[in-house]
């Protein structure tokens, strides 16, 4: 944990260690200070219950991770909560505002801003214009004021200054005048996140912020997410990489088949047998970015009969050669085992 980034806020959100849940942690437990409360939200696609969340609260000023296997309904829940899709039933409140049936742009104006799994940047606008587009309260965005620069010029300067600061923070300042379409995938993720921050949201919802981002950028993205919390924002993000979740999340919500199946602090949730079976896999606690961890895993897999793919002499024409190469076969089994986990 790098705490050098903690903002000079009056309250230190990074050091707040009070319990998040009111009472015992478990699926649908109440939180001490929820920012978002979801009740009985369901969404059906044909005969499938894509989302069926009975009760869920997202803690304020915390980083909450939403995990679950593919098709668990994580992105659908995101879409429902932000007004991009309509639920079959249910209600939810954000900061006291009931949001059921509220248009997506109004949800964003209330301070609940999201990003998308498939990054959405305006390719043929420059990076700086993308950022400016994220800002709120620009009177020049009204048609009646658009022709009169004196009405919106000052706000435009403020917006530009705010955008420059954010671009510098996200190391995109060198690209400010380039078309967003010329950015790499990781840079687009950064731009999308920076753009979402232009509106100074209360709750930032990130849909797979790390997908397709190279490991070097992942670290800086993680730092950015932790910074959001330090600055007093609440973060809810969907992620598949358990190491990422373990490093930055204060709270983990696990979904499977549309339902919340587990909730709790990351360390506890990852010990939950149901979560392990459904999602994590047997070797979830090994950090593959770490050489020590890799060696440990290989040693462990060497003992594990289930991780060996096929029989020992499968695919080998001469059995007398296979005797000599038997050990290498096990190593191949180990590789397959690792793939299972990803």
């Amino acid at each position: 944990m790098t705490d050098k980034t903690t903002a000079p806020a009056t309250i230190d959100f990074m050091a707040d260690t009070r319990p998040i849940a009111e009472g015992e942690a478990g699926p649908g437990c109440r939180k001490r200070d929820p920012i978002l409360t979801v009740r009985h939200v369901t969404r059906r696609f044909g005969g499938i219950n894509a989302v069926d969340v009975d009760f869920l609260e997202i803690p304020r000023h915390k980083i909450t991770a939403l995990i679950g296997p593919n098709g668990a309904g994580k992105t659908t829940l995101f879409n429902l909560l932000t007004g991009f899709d309509q639920p079959n039933s249910g209600e939810w409140t954000f900061d006291g505002h009931p949001l059921a049936g509220v248009a997506s742009y109004k949800v964003a104006r209330l301070g609940m801003v999201r990003t998308f799994q498939l990054t959405k940047v305006m390719g043929k606008l420059t990076v700086l214009e993308n950022m400016r587009l994220g800002a709120a309260d620009q009177p020049g965005e009204r048609l009646s004021a658009a022709l009169f620069k004196n009405l919106w010029g000052r706000r435009e300067k403020e917006i530009t200054a705010q955008a420059e600061v954010l671009l510098e923070k996200f190391k995109l300042d060198a690209k400010r005048n380039d078309y967003a379409a010329s950015l790499s995938g990781g840079q687009r993720k950064l731009l999308e996140m920076a753009r979402a921050l232009m509106a100074r949201p209360k709750l930032v919802m990130l849909d797979e912020p790390m997908a397709g981002v190279n490991p070097a950028l992942t670290q800086s993205l993680l730092d950015h997410i932790k910074n959001l919390k330090a600055e007093g924002m609440t973060v809810l993000f969907v992620e598949h990489d358990m190491q990422v979740v373990r490093h930055i999340a204060d709270w983990v919500v696990v979904m499977a088949e549309g339902k919340v199946v587990a909730e709790g602090p990351p360390a506890d949730v990852m010990k939950d047998q149901a979560v392990i079976d459904a999602y994590l896999g047997a070797h979830h606690d090994v950090d593959l970015g770490d050489t020590e961890g890799l060696k440990e895993l290989e040693a462990e897999l060497a003992q594990d009969q289930a991780s060996v793919v096929g029989t020992e002499d499968e695919g080998i024409l001469g059995h007398h050669i296979a005797e000599r190469d038997g050990r290498r076969d096990e190593a191949a089994g180990g590789t397959a085992g690792r793939k299972d986990q990803g």
Binding site: A103, Y105, A108, R109, F116, K120, E192, A196, M198, A199
Partner: peptide
């Protein structure tokens, strides 16, 4: 959709 997510009608 991106514009919508930024609070524009």
């Amino acid at each position: 959709n991106a514009v919508r997510s930024l609070g524009k009608n």
